[in-house]
Amino acid sequence: MEPSVSSPVAPMLAKAVDAVPDQESVAGGLSFEPKWDGFRAIVYFDGEKVEIGSRGSKMLTRYFPELTDAFARLLPGPCVLDGEIVVPTGASGSERLDWEALSQRIHPADSRVQKLAVETPAMFVAFDLLADGDRNLTGVPFAERRAELERLIGPLPHPLHLTRTTTDVDLARRWLVEFEGAGLDGVVAKPLASAYAPNKRVMLKIKHHRTADVVVIGYRIHSSGRGVGSLLLGLYDDDGQLRSVGGASAFSDARRLELIDELDPLVERDADGEIVKGEGERSRFSSSKDVSFVRLRPERVVEVRYDQMEGMRFRHTAQFDRWRPDREPTSCTFAQLDRPIAYDLSQVIS
């Protein structure tokens, strides 16, 4: 069945690997491309109407009027595209992807959506073609889909872009280092001979992995109501203030219960012995979610693994590595964090 709004397709997914693989590791070879840090989007254009579906099939159409207008104006005919919606910010020569500006675009008020479409316009980076006219391309090898995508998207102007690709492993490894400075998320490797496999982890993704020693400042109860769901983490700034930088999660059922006992001596309590709770930031994506947490005295240090920073916070949830009883909490500062070398986004976009 041909992909369409009435018959939506689930995006093909990627499996995380530790390093950029060699060409010989996959039969038929690999194509490498930048990993864009935005909203995954499947774009359906029937020749007149545009719909934009998210990775979870939620419709994003109303949030990006400038893109729906561009698709309708610029696409030469009906097609289904797979790609990423991103928002670039910064002066010419120092542009980078801005996740915070992108996330602000998901807003319930249409007046706000229209305002942000002008102030922080998005662009679309295409990296696969699933249908062209009445041709369903999901069953053909990626090498053929890519050639068709280049023919379709290559000549089109901003805000529609074609992601760059290479079969040069050394260049892909260089991209992994350089492009992070423009706000990108890593590198993706796609088997040239593979068909499009919805919801299957056929692609490979290589992201940055770093460690940091951080202070545990609280925890949230797991959604099941039993045990620790996530640890809240902090770092000291230049003024000696402890700043929240994100959280660490992904504990087993048994470990969640163990952590309750381990952390109990650090729980802050009021004069009546009651647990002191704090209120975390509420996301616009889950405004009804309970964001309260149990406050802990900042006395324990944990080493976590993370991929990148977004401003003063971990961009994604960090992963617990090990306790660091040898570290003083006040020694855990932002100075330890590895910051990427600045790289202009215009040098990434083809």
Rank of each mutant, 00 (worst) to 15 (best):
S6V: 10
P8L: 02
K15H: 13
V17N: 06
V26M: 08
A27G: 13
S31F: 15
A41C: 15
A41D: 00
E48P: 02
V50Q: 09
V50F: 09
R55Q: 09
K58T: 11
P65C: 11
T68G: 08
D69R: 14
F71S: 06
A72G: 10
G77A: 11
G83V: 01
V87Y: 07
W99V: 14
E100V: 15
I106K: 14
T120I: 14
A126G: 03
L129T: 05
R135W: 05
R135P: 00
T138P: 02
R151E: 15
L152V: 06
L152E: 06
I153K: 03
H158Y: 12
P159R: 05
V169A: 13
L176F: 11
D185W: 02
V188A: 04
K200I: 13
M203C: 13
M203G: 01
K207Q: 12
R210I: 04
V214N: 02
V215I: 02
G218K: 03
G218F: 03
H222S: 11
R226L: 11
G227S: 03
V228K: 00
V228G: 00
S230I: 00
Y236P: 02
D237C: 03
D261C: 00
D261V: 04
L263V: 11
P265I: 06
L266P: 09
L266A: 13
V267Y: 06
K277N: 08
G280D: 09
G280F: 02
S288Y: 08
D290Y: 07
D290T: 11
E299L: 12
V301H: 02
E303M: 12
A318P: 02
Q319I: 08
R322E: 01
W323M: 03
D326Q: 12
L337C: 06
Y343H: 15
L345Q: 03
I349E: 03
